[in-house]
Amino acid sequence: MIPPRLVPLLEQYDFACERLTGRMAGPVMDSGDGSETPVGPMTDDEYLWEPVPDCWSVRRRTDGPGARATLLTGTGDWGRDAASHPHPFPPPFTTIAWRLSHLGEMLSLRADHTVGERRATREGHPVSGDAATAVAAFEADAAAWRKALLSADEAALDTVGHSTYPYGSDAEDPFVDIVWWVNQEVLHHGAEIALIRDLYRARRP
């Protein structure tokens, strides 16, 4: 039995993930009014497109971090631009690749720190260098967090520190607040990714 308070949050999460995945992978996307709009799968060029100078993105480790970044976080041949505190100000503009990597990492790590071994780290999270792999990773990470949500009962929703995710406010907030926060992360980063795809399509030659 899904706790009644969780039902609308889970429905919102499912809708946000489905809409973002459709927007990135096609062949159709929800245009917002329930109709299906054709859309092609995101290309590697879109995924890595830097619309302004000095973007933060994901990069080959052999190339090193981008402007104002001090390290490439994650594991594998690719890493995501990052910097130790204090972070650069104003914040760098981030590519689809950066935003999708950040989003997938957050979902995967929070799932692990809720129902897994509670040992996953940002440094150990794989970073994808191409669009298809990144979209598939997002779908897997989103499914992992959904599974964590389905494990929560009423008591868990009110428990402070039910998630031990070390990069957020999980240790200070009831789990239901974390569920809400993750939803808004998917919603707002999903909207950003969709907008960058639109800008890429409308760019001048």
Rank of each mutant, 00 (worst) to 15 (best):
M1E: 12
M1D: 12
M1P: 11
V7Y: 09
P8L: 00
L9W: 00
Q12C: 03
Q12N: 12
Y13S: 14
Y13R: 15
F15N: 10
F15W: 14
A16C: 13
C17G: 08
E18H: 15
E18R: 15
R19Y: 10
L20I: 07
G22V: 09
R23D: 12
M24G: 01
M24C: 13
G26F: 08
D30F: 10
S31A: 14
S31K: 04
G32W: 02
G32I: 05
D33M: 04
D33F: 04
G34D: 02
T37G: 06
P38M: 05
V39T: 12
G40P: 03
T43I: 02
D44F: 00
D45L: 07
Y47F: 10
Y47G: 02
L48V: 04
W49L: 08
E50R: 08
E50W: 04
V52R: 12
V52S: 10
V52M: 12
P53F: 13
C55R: 03
R60F: 10
D63K: 09
P65A: 10
R68D: 09
T73E: 11
G74A: 06
G74R: 01
D77G: 09
D77Q: 08
W78H: 11
D81M: 07
A83Q: 07
S84N: 05
H87S: 09
P88Q: 06
T95Q: 02
I96T: 07
I96H: 06
A97Q: 01
A97N: 02
W98E: 02
R99L: 05
R99I: 02
H102K: 06
L103F: 07
E105G: 08
L107S: 02
L109K: 09
R110F: 07
D112T: 05
D112K: 01
T114I: 09
T114R: 13
R122H: 04
R122K: 03
R122I: 15
R122N: 05
E123T: 02
G124R: 00
P126C: 04
V127I: 15
S128W: 04
D130M: 07
A131R: 08
A131F: 12
A134E: 10
V135F: 03
A136L: 15
A140R: 15
D141E: 12
A143W: 06
A143K: 04
K147M: 14
L149C: 08
L150N: 09
L150V: 11
S151Y: 06
E154C: 02
E154F: 02
A156F: 09
L157C: 03
V160E: 01
G161M: 00
H162F: 11
S163V: 01
Y165T: 05
G168T: 07
G168A: 13
S169D: 13
D173K: 10
V176A: 13
V176D: 14
V182T: 12
V182A: 04
V182D: 06
N183S: 11
E185V: 10
V186E: 01
I193T: 11
A194N: 06
L195I: 12
L195G: 09
L195A: 13
I196G: 03
R197H: 03
R197I: 05
D198V: 10
A202K: 15
A202E: 13
A202F: 14
